[in-house]
Design a binder for these strands. Sequence first.
DNA 1: AATATTCATCGTAATATTGCAATATAGAAT
DNA 2: ATTCTATATTGCAATATTACGATGAATATT
Lengths: 110, 110
Amino acid sequence: MGASKSDHFTEKQNAMALMAKALGHPARIAILEYLLKVDSCICGDIVDELPLAQPTISQHLKELKSAGIIKGSIEGNSICYCINEKALEKIQSYFGNILKTLEKKKSSCC
Amino acid sequence: MGASKSDHFTEKQNAMALMAKALGHPARIAILEYLLKVDSCICGDIVDELPLAQPTISQHLKELKSAGIIKGSIEGNSICYCINEKALEKIQSYFGNILKTLEKKKSSCC
DNA sequence: AATATTCATCGTAATATTGCAATATAGAAT
DNA sequence: ATTCTATATTGCAATATTACGATGAATATT
């Protein structure tokens, strides 16, 4: 196999999994952090920052974009990619809710 | 290939990617949510809750555990898995910091 | 002790991911 | 127009993931 049975889960579950998956690679985490460091838009090249070839980075950017983690596009000769705040806010609130629920329960086990 | 070049990235980046990757599948998100719903420990069977075969779920649990998202083990004839609060707190604070930095910058683009 | 129950592991097939070289594309600069 | 520069796309090889049937190990139940 290798294909996940996404039709059996809820929209929300699939959406969260998609974003998590996009962030499930150190290169893509590094890209996110670089986008954060270099103000919002990268008008330089990420390629020099990461130990990966240009096509590989381009692919990672594509994945991050299709997952909604980043947004933007090329503009002439320079990219204009930046972090999609809303996506991160969704992640933040998702885990925030889980943690809130966990604290309420305070069940002792494990 | 298919193997990620994790040695080129920082410990923190690899750690975050690992946790994100573990959550990058709807079944594992569903397991997390089920663990939350059923108090801390599942002493019943998740298998009946999810549309997946028992070996598959066992595998997903293993992955979640090795990523540190959940903890516990079997006890006699029943499992005792529960959410590892600390892992979720790490995720929460990671994205919290990013969002905080983003707000400070408030650069308009894209 | 024999059987049932519950979860883990093994083996394996189908598919996805990762990474790069080669190539394509598109705007900028000359 | 041609060349340069920066990014995307394609094609491919190596490896990882997902899923399940079959089997194994350990504890309960009878």
